[in-house]
Every structure is written in C-alpha cells, then in structure tokens.
Design a protein around this nucleic acid. Sequence first.
DNA 1: AACAACACCAACCGCTGCGGC
DNA 2: AGCCGCAGCGGTTGGTGTTGT
Length: 308
Amino acid sequence: MGRPPCCDKVGMKKGPWTPEEDIILVSYIQEHGPGNWRSVPANTGLMRCSKSCRLRWTNYLRPGIKRGNFTPHEEGMIVHLQALLGNKWAAIASYLPQRTDNDIKNYWNTHLKKKLRKFQSVLEPSSVAAATDEIDSEDRKSLGFGTDARSGSSNVKLSQSSSTSSSSYASSTENISRLLQGWMRSSPKVNGDSIRSSSSATANCDLISHGDGQLESILSFENMNNVALMENSTSKGTFQDSGNGERLNPEKKPKAGHLKNLNNNDDDDNDNDNDNPPLSFLEKWFLDESSAGQVEDMNQMMELSSIF
DNA sequence: AACAACACCAACCGCTGCGGC
DNA sequence: AGCCGCAGCGGTTGGTGTTGT
C-alpha cells in the first residue's frame, strides 16, 4: 500500500525540463525564495510535481553549482569522505558546496568506483610492478597517490566525456545559473559570501600541484583548511546558498545522523556545538591522517571502498 | 557508414524522518 | 500519542552522446 506517489497526479509532466520551465521555476524562486515546494507547481502553473521542482532547483538551477570536471582535490575529498561516511551523498556534498549530491553520486558511480576497483586489483601483491603501468598518472594523482613532478597541472581532464553529454541546453541553464549569481548578490535572502568563499576555496583547490607528497591531492593541509575555514566562517547556519539551505549546512545533517555519528555520541550531549565547528572531527581526522600514516590510510580506504 | 556496446548524467521512484496538528 | 503531509535522501532508470567494431 503506502501513499501514492506525488507524481501520480494526472497531467503531471515528467522527463527532461525545458528551458521555458526552468525560467518559470527560476523566476518563481527568485521572487519567493526556495522552499514550500508544494506551492510551486500550483503558483507557477508548471505541470511538475513539487519533488521534481525541488530536484531541478537543487541539482541544476541553484546558483553556485559548479558543473563539469571534478578537480583531483574534489575527487580526493569524495573518496576520502565516502570511506568515512559511506554513501551519504548529501553529507559528502555538504563538504563540496559547489557540487550536488546527485553529481557526486553520479561521479562516484561512474568514475571513482571504477578507479578504486582498478587500484584495488592492481594493489594485489605480485602485481605492484604492473600497477605503475596500469594506472595512469591522473588516476594516481586524483586518488591521492601523489604525482610525479612531471605531471604539471592538477587540473587534469578526468573523464573524456564528463562534458560530452552537455547539450546545448545544458549551457543555457548555465546561463540561467549565471544570471542567478547576479540575483544572489542583490537578494537579501542570499548569503553571497558563501558562494564567494566557496569559489575562492575551489580556486585554491584547483591549484594543488605540489606533486611531491603522497596523498597530496586529498590531504593537503592548505586545502583542508580552506574547507574547514570556509565551514567555520559560515558555520552558524549560514553556509548555504540562496536555496533552502539543504545540503550545504552540515549542522543540519544530524537529521540523517551523519555527523552526529561521526562525532561519537559520547559527547553529543555536550552542547558546545556552537563552539565547535561542525567539522572538528573531520578536520582532526584529516589533519592527523595527513601528517602520518597516509599510505596506510589510503590502503584502509581502499579496503573500505572494496565493499562496493 | 551503420550498428552495437559503453559511458554519462538528469530525472524519477520509493523510503525515511521530522514537524505540525 | 498517533496520524498525516512534506521535504530530503539514496538507489535506480532511461535517454542521449561517444567510442569501438
């Protein structure tokens, strides 16, 4: 039994969104702000269910979304966080504010899982020699196994087709997003700082190419600190985009129990959360792990990943 | 050039948990 | 206290583009 799906309503449109629909949705949200999704179809005349509207907004139209290739740093973050959190894509996405959970999930399923598998198979004893040949340097780098100094830019092309399916329409929605960036700056509901800080952090992420240490791309102090600072500076519930605040605010996550679990509930009554940034556990973890035992941890991570 | 297989990703589906009544 | 509606989340699917034969 159960409740009938919200989209069963006769006349509800499904499938890809058209630019016109996007514009309607964006204009509406521009005017009323995100949230109260149920009222969106009714008030806009869109023949879409509320879920569909929310999804379209959060995964595609929301300003501040970065599309296209994942940087090695982002990859590393995802791998690391996935090992930590499991398939809690929303939680993972909260640490990559410019990426949606859907994006990360897709990227994990289509790229990273394979890479990790490849790594794992290659790391089997007796095949270590072959490993260096089988794994291309990009994989090595993005998975955190360091780069050789020759490999230059860290902004490697991760997937030959990560942008292949970007249709002409995709770029038009990018335009919509760009337009919204302007709106965000002027809208009182919007915390433009979050976007700006995110952008700067990402810019830093893009610059990682020290190339000498192992796990550099994953565990760079600088970059972790960027993320942490970013979170800290905005952690009082403001680390969110103009949107409904979902996903971008780790403090909201306890709903799903992600970080609460992480923080080891021994202390979770200890309501000094206001003093402790939500990332304290992760920060420590990252920082500790980055300073020692990196390879072991990577191996451990690989083991964890093998579950999938 | 045509077809098949593969890869990618936007969108959907169904479940869960929270909050209001 | 229990029910109901909603938002959010994670898994899955289907359409489309790309690559290989």
